[in-house]
Design a protein around this nucleic acid. Structure first.
Lengths: 194, 194
DNA sequence: AATACAACCGGACTACGGTCCGTTTACTCT
DNA sequence: AGAGTAAACGGACCGTAGTCCGGTTGTATT
């Protein structure tokens, strides 16, 4: 039976697996920064053109690598147990959301950074739009009286920018705990206002 | 009379002037994106090495180009007339600060963007530290009761990230006025809380 | 004026991300 | 099985930021 969308050719599938495997190996070995597209191609035993056709760009590759954990994160705040998932009060969910994002950034640091350096900005990423809608929804549920909750949600998310968070942690010795506390402080002020 | 710090050699001074002039010309002609270090060197009639010794990096060059307007901005919020400068209520000054930053980003868009892509992040910039201290001070003056006003100030400044603002304006058609209103909304909620 | 030296100069060189296009290969249809 | 075709392949090629080092030049000293 022929699929509606053309099936992936077998050599393409094989090369994709090879590339992902090689990428994880290289990153495990020398960190995300050491992964260059040339090295990846060579290590995977494919041509460079193949790498770019598969992933579009270096950032696209990183995004693919993060896909699983990102999907898991999304599932947790969309469908998971409270306080992150539905069931808890909006403010509680907001606090948990930030705390989880911070933990996520800490865990996948370099990868997230490399994924952020996309050619066309780090705001086009579908995930970013989802986070915005989520925070937006929580704000509305929290009953805030803002002219533009969408923009406010975007501002709050900007606060969690990975590059900024990692900079504070790595260069200024700020602990993730303090960042989480600061996030709690921020969103609490906003939601408990009106 | 010999200066305390070694004086700049005359050829160095002459080349710096040439480079800044050439850079402004190139930008005027084709926008900041069209300014490559090779073209700049050629257009200024100097070697490429000279460009990098002078400015360190492309971002450093952009920073130098922005230096005057940045200094003017700083002077305005440090010493200028209210509501941006001293004399107005902290909340008023905070609102004005964001509004001016947004206007600044709109005016110097491409340049600010290019300056932000510094090798070691866009947070090391001395100006950023100054903005943080300024917002921090205004928050304290506003009498907020936060465990870490410094981190809160950093979060607020993250909200004004040029890349984000320009993305909203250029790709999503958000007007600077709406951004300003959103900033006012945000800081008002934070300051009028406690 | 000659000398010495530190600073500066220039452009060849490297590493990297990304593109292009002629060639090869897996699937499909008869 | 054999032919036809669209897709995938690979690596030469390009533009760019940034580095390096042998040669040059301005400046202070005597």
């Amino acid at each position: 039976m022929t699929p509606v969308t053309a099936a992936e050719r077998s050599d393409a599938a094989r090369n994709r697996e090879r590339l992902l495997l090689a990428a994880r190996e290289l990153i495990e070995h020398g960190g995300a920064a050491s992964l260059t597209m040339d090295r990846l191609a060579e290590h995977a035993g494919v041509g460079k053109g193949t790498v770019f056709r598969r992933f579009g760009s270096r950032a696209g590759l990183m995004l693919t690598l993060l896909n699983d954990s990102e999907a898991a994160f999304q599932a947790r705040f969309l469908f998971g147990p409270p306080p992150l998932g539905p069931g808890a009060a909006p403010l509680e969910r907001l606090i948990a959301f930030g705390a989880e994002r911070i933990a996520y950034v800490v865990e996948y640091g370099d990868l997230v950074l490399a994924a952020g350096n996309a050619s066309r900005g780090r705001f086009e990423v579908p995930a970013a739009a989802l986070w915005n809608r989520h925070v937006d929804m929580l704000l509305r549920e929290g009953g805030i009286d803002s002219p533009e909750p969408g923009l406010l949600a975007g501002s709050l998310n900007a606060t969690l920018d990975p590059e900024r968070l990692l900079h504070l942690i790595r260069e200024h010795g700020v602990t993730p705990e303090r960042l989480t506390a600061s996030w709690r402080d921020l969103v609490t002020r906003i939601v408990t206002d009106a």
